[in-house]
Amino acid sequence: MQNNIQNKTLIAVGKNGEEYEFKVQNSYQYSSKGCKLTIEMIEEADGFMLFSCEGVRYPVEIVSRKLNNYEVLVNGVSYNFTVETPFSLKRREILAANQPVSDGEDVCAPMPGKIVSIIAQEGMEVNPGDPLLVLEAMKMQNTLTASVKGVVKTVAAKAGATVGKDELLVEIKKA
């Protein structure tokens, strides 16, 4: 299917707003600031992924993809980028200006259960996906994770306590 990626401009926006702009020639040729970059994704026999750029190979891993947000590891270092087009970047600004952003996340019990252990501590910095606590329900250990980056404001849960559905366990304040 033609997605007309040719001559498209894509911008990777990092966590701190840093922007990397790429012109897409085709699926393996890109350019950045006039510099041609030929890439290749190599899957080794043992399952490791190598990302080759201009012949230099980097061990990489795609950790997660959510909407247009990608977390990747290069040399074991984690990077978060959202992939935008010039239009979607502008759109982001428009929407950000129009909407009040929520200032955190309330992590509630998704089901009734028992708190087995608490990893989160007040004042602890958390990133999306970080484990906060372990809830045992249906005789299974479920690790509840943060979905926003921020600082743990309160830990309402107590280890060993039984909690009901939707009971507040951890409050996270957005950084």
């Binding site: 990777a12 270092v77 992939v83």
Partner: peptide, 26 residues
């Protein structure tokens, strides 16, 4: 953490090319 020179650019390019790959169903 130690970052190699241009590592961030490589990571950005990886994200972009993965995005393209994900949306390439030719």
């Amino acid at each position: 953490i130690y970052k190699e020179e241009h590592e961030e650019l490589i990571a950005a390019l990886l994200a972009v090319s993965t995005y393209n790959h994900d949306n390439d169903f030719s």
